[in-house]
Design a protein around this nucleic acid. Sequence first.
DNA 1: CCGAGTTGAGCAAGCGGTTGGGCGCACACG
DNA 2: CGTGTGCGCCCAACCGCTTGCTCAACTCGG
Lengths: 222, 222
Amino acid sequence: MTTTSTNSGRPKNRATGEGGARRRGKGSAALASERREHLVKLAAELFAEKGFQATTVRNIAEEAGILSGSLYHHFDSKESIVDEILAGFFQEIMSAYRSVIDEGNDPRTTIAGLVRIAFGTLEPHRAAITVMQNDWNYLKGMERFAYLTKSEDEVEKMWVDTIKAGQRDGLFRADIDPKLTYRMIRDTVWVAVRWFKPGGRLNAQGLAEHYLKVMFDGINTH
Amino acid sequence: MTTTSTNSGRPKNRATGEGGARRRGKGSAALASERREHLVKLAAELFAEKGFQATTVRNIAEEAGILSGSLYHHFDSKESIVDEILAGFFQEIMSAYRSVIDEGNDPRTTIAGLVRIAFGTLEPHRAAITVMQNDWNYLKGMERFAYLTKSEDEVEKMWVDTIKAGQRDGLFRADIDPKLTYRMIRDTVWVAVRWFKPGGRLNAQGLAEHYLKVMFDGINTH
DNA sequence: CCGAGTTGAGCAAGCGGTTGGGCGCACACG
DNA sequence: CGTGTGCGCCCAACCGCTTGCTCAACTCGG
């Protein structure tokens, strides 16, 4: 007879309940503990491999050679780990996008630049992109990750405006839908993360050039 | 003390276990099958919405207005439900692909036909495609779903062979990578399931035509 | 009265998260 | 120089809860 431990009328105040001042002075992050970053990387690999929800804190801990309880000396929840992963990725890519736009080249050059940047993140941010793809629906439903949708909208605006400008300048066909075209490009780039292997036949930049070729001129002979 | 019945080396084959004679005879087969199919559809919607792993058997049962235990009168596991969903989808699309190829048209027409078929499945098989996309990594790791990878390989061969034939005939550019191009097309089509809304501005066939335009001739003006 | 279909209680396992304590290293202090 | 002590890091056990799945007993139309 094992301890069945059936609910003994204990109040169910769990974590985060009262006193939001749990982990005071997260400012110690300034130290940016190496250990912490290492754990984030391990977690990212697992999230990418099995999905965020399917990865348990015990998985992460085991990968790091510690027990799950120890993880909570570094993070206050599983969510905050994935938050760190995604926030870093978004920050980097949006800043890169902006600098391409700010160069003020013609729309075709700008689009090419954006595509190259996107493919360029495939390798260094493989895990973040995979998480973003697989768990987007789940994550965007939480207030904590509202910034994901906001950033996504901002990015969409950059692309769509550039495509429209290209149409005005007569560089891009007028009979394509800018928003639709943006989505196709975006999805095609990110989805490559599923089969792209860094050591393979083609590197990320090779992928980008191949894609630009097809996207700009099609697969037909002319 | 209830019978603990912990697994005593018993094989876990239930329903579908011995003999595929699941729905043999019994005029009720049609009826039972209807109920079963209904449950599969409900489950498919949930899997698509929240992911396979994140959907619980209690979710499915609740959606059907029954209790989780009752589900096991129809299926022997959660896996067998998703199996039914994916197997049906693959069977249908591969048969459709084959008949297009068997028409023996020129490669350009054949590719266009394949693209139209793929987009055509977007609406009727929305849930299956979403599951395939989001949970592919998880599912392909199980022997039970080995046929997924096998079918995928067969499909890839159809597309790649057609693209190569088009290159030989001078219809498609020689400087594109057939395999890479196939993957681009495939990803672009399937990934549309994320934002495609049946009642929206563009139906699936409209999407297909838009994409064929871009894919064949690019977004540049000529 | 048969049996397909359902119920409701329940199991073992595992989940995310919490906690009190202990180890060992760095550094200040006498 | 020894030593005490604060602290980063971690362990082990545990909590309340959910998971996929099981099963004896019940319902009820044919």
